[in-house]
Design a binder for these strands. Structure first.
Lengths: 151, 151
DNA sequence: CTTTAATATATCGTGTGCGATATAAAAATA
DNA sequence: TATTTTTATATCGCACACGATATATTAAAG
């Protein structure tokens, strides 16, 4: 009836599906490390810069503590990170890599390139992948701006 | 260390974030109807064509029954749909809209346009939104192909 | 200095996603 | 027809997302 209610018209459904499928394509690579995609995101942040507080992580990932804290707890239980209260400000919680967490970087570093290649091999053109980046950044920036306005 | 492990380099993180943020921007509109985004997707399919079997829905949404069945059970409990076994093939489960489910179409039809306008108003250009569609379709098609190969 | 407000993180409940497995019915095969 | 295989859906367990709320600590105001 209403064309705007057709699934095939919806940008949102495409984003939802693309995100699910590409995350799923990471999963087999992570399986032998016993980590998940969101855990991988946090590890990447810590490989970039160790000893970050929870707030730094939630800010970069655009997630709330009610999502990140439980993930950090699982990662701590697995021995990938440790969490300790900041002495300067006892409210803050500093997240640090363990040696196990540090070692994983070396083993995982080829995964993103490997996946990109397999997508290109299966027919997606590199230029199209590259074209997505600024468009998604613009979209994320715009919606992020809306979210902040409402606060 | 490894540039491919920087968060800012990753297409996947952008898709993950964009999907989350845009879905979140739908949520306030759905709140007064008591539905969620995935439930909205299923309603759209049924508004397009009523009385579909579970398999039709999983195929269109690229989801498995282990995700869709619980959603359908919740929707049935809320009185939006009913589920009944097919007499022709007793394995199949036919999903049909209730009158409440049908009535919701009229009330929700403006939501997608409304959201698109608000994103454009906040600085995202229509051409950029339109440009995303074929790129995402290509990506989804490519990754979907990979997924099928492994079966 | 005490009270109040703001900040940082954690907890709880609900609804997905998804791997693994189970169940039941229909189709294919022996 | 009896047996095996395939198909369609459901169940179970775990890990997110996220709204709502709680707790503890620091900063600001009176």
């Amino acid at each position: 009836m209403y064309p705007q209610l057709k699934l095939d018209k919806q940008l949102c459904f495409r984003l939802y599906t693309a995100a699910r499928l590409i995350t799923a394509s990471y999963t087999p690579f992570f399986k032998k490390f016993g980590i998940t995609y969101p855990q991988y995101l946090i590890l990447m942040l810590l490989w970039e810069k160790d000893n970050q507080v929870v707030g730094d992580i939630t800010e970069r990932l655009l997630l709330e503590t009610n999502t990140v804290t439980p993930i950090l707890q699982r990662m701590e239980k697995q021995g990938l990170i440790i969490r300790q209260k900041s002495k300067a400000d006892n409210r803050k919680c500093i997240v640090s890599l363990t040696n196990d967490g540090k070692r994983m970087e070396e083993q995982i570093k080829e995964v993103p390139n490997c996946l990109a290649h397999s997508i290109v091999d299966d027919g997606m053109e590199i230029d199209d992948l590259k074209a997505l980046v600024p468009l998604l950044d613009k979209l994320i920036g715009t919606i992020g701006k809306q979210t902040k306005q409402k606060e």
